[in-house]
Design a protein around this nucleic acid. Structure first.
Lengths: 129, 129
DNA sequence: GTTTTTGCAAACTTTTTGCATGCGG
DNA sequence: CCGCATGCAAAAAGTTTGCAAAAAC
């Protein structure tokens, strides 16, 4: 019988720290470049693998804003929320929504067993409009 | 002075027809393969360019289900709606939502000028659950 | 005939995979 | 030790770009 356990290694710690230091969701490249600038080189592959792991462990949220790359944010320290994305400058603002209210308003009639949803808003921020 | 106008060419017509024949959103590859099987070869590039054009002209909707590729569906013939995606078999079901109700329930307080939103649901369909 | 559109080749971006080496417990 | 994790190289998948040739009007 083999033991299973995750190790808290240098790359994982660094990635976690980067996530902690960012309020807005970050991409794999964001993390890579952020660390690189500080002379903390981690292979991109490890970033992908670590985020994948964190996603499965519900440590991070994976978000898509429609520009072909995924972004990640720490789950801890935040309530369930959605995002407002500025089409012009890319600024991201969190918005909290009363999900019960939302789901009640939706009154979805379906045979699907809904497990999760994504809801993102796009527009122009105060500065850009 | 030069004239500007779009031309209704063979590739564009074919792509439009493919979209008409599909209820569920299709990817660029879906369109490409569908036509290829019927010996109607169109370059993938043209598919990308045509869809881009159609998106700008609000002829198609661009949707993301989180699997790294974009999907398209005709706007015409459908009311504003969202999707239920089965995580297991990939089946897609449309759901209509009373947007006024939704937005009222949300009561979003923000400086953003919201122009659009995406809302997709993920879960298991009747067969897969 | 002139402008728009296409197909082809090539590049670019994001993400994934295989594998030998290396680190953690 | 020994298994899990890393870095590196390479590839896969989706998408974009430049350009000459072809099609539309």
């Amino acid at each position: 019988m083999t033991k299973i356990g995750y190790r808290f290694t240098r790359p994982r710690r660094l990635i976690f720290e980067v996530l902690e230091q960012h309020i807005k969701p970050v991409s794999t490249q964001d993390i890579f470049q952020f660390l690189k600038k500080r002379n903390k080189y981690i292979d991109l592959t490890s970033i992908y693998r670590t985020l994948d792991l964190m996603k499965k462990a519900t440590i991070v949220n994976e978000i898509e804003f429609g520009d072909g790359k995924k972004r990640y944010e720490l789950v801890k320290g935040k309530n369930h929320h959605h995002h407002l994305v500025c089409k012009n400058c890319g600024d991201v603002e969190d918005i909290e929504i009363r999900e019960e209210k939302l789901m009640k308003a939706l009154k979805i009639e379906t045979d699907f067993k809904i497990e999760k949803h994504t809801l993102e808003f796009f527009g122009l921020c105060d500065k850009c409009k």
